[in-house]
Amino acid sequence: MILMMPIIQLIVIPLAADYEIKQISISVVDQDHSPYSQKLVHKLTASGYFQLVEYTQSYAQASKTVNNGNTDLILTIPQHFERDLIKSNKAQLHLAADAVNGVRAGLGTAYAAQMIGDFNREVREEWMLLPKFNEIPQIEITSANWFNQHFDYHLFMVPGILAILVTMVGCFLTALNIVAEKEVGTIEQINVSPIKKYEFILGKLIPFWVLGMVSITLGMVFAFLIFRIIPVGSYLTIYAFSAVYLLGVLGIGLLISTFADTQQQATLFSFFCMMVFILLGGLYTPIESMPEWAQWLTRINPPAYFIKVIRAVFIKGSSFSDLIPDFLAMIGFAILFNALAVFNYRKRSA
């Protein structure tokens, strides 16, 4: 049960939560009706990314379609598009996006812009053949996607979820386990015994540490079985980081358990922590695009480091020495949280 939940997540989330956007609906307001405008529309629809839902002359009509939620983008081709393009060597297009779904709007306009750029180049090439034009110097940008050539979303997501899986096992279970002892009262019996604080805490840490290591192993097995994802880097690096990272997360769990009195409190608090961990951990949104203050917060968010490391090892094949600063940070977290937990755990109450 404990291991099934994250594994189901590992399987379902990368498959479902796909950022690659296909099938963007587009309305074209063509006020030009020229061969060039036809060509542009044809180019867009032929790409497979866009689905032409409407081809109209009136912007008002297209805007109504947006309001109905039936289209994502409006491309307006103004009158005299072709004439301006040929005569004055430039022409304007208007692109409007329904930004309720920001991701869709952003990606849609980006794709469209890219394609219009392409179209522009083709037009230039066509003219270039005519000798009466001088060669125009131009810079063409071509990008190569390193490490994840085909922008495979799974390759990006699976290692991240693997990191969250380990965090959940470590943080949730430890916190709940100790608080359960408080609730049932077994901790009373332990407290009157000559067991030392550190012995008790070690006794709690070790099983969950082992469980965490097992869960990352299982996670990697499933990542291979289902997504055929194999870390490019070394397993040893992954395990070394997991080992240290788990200590830190277990420390957080312990810390929660020292001030929560009931499992309900512990659950709520762990849940809150998980939300922060995930949202500020760079799992879904890149840390680099967060505002500066949030980027500072991610620096004190242990999963942010682990997600980064796991992705680096899985996708880039980073070696241990590349990631030493992250390793040191994780050691720091492990020491900090465990020290706080030991300090805060009291065998007797005042």
């Binding site: 077994t186 009373e188 019996q189 009157v192």
Partner: peptide, 29 residues
């Protein structure tokens, strides 16, 4: 803590351990 035995009012042994396991556990402690 070494020389007293305490039996709290609320039953506070490990409910998910058997009789034997509880005894062995507390003996080890």
């Amino acid at each position: 803590r070494r020389i007293v035995g305490y039996m709290p009012g609320k039953f506070s042994l490990y409910q998910d351990l058997s009789i034997e396991e509880n005894l062995n556990f507390f003996a080890t402690v």
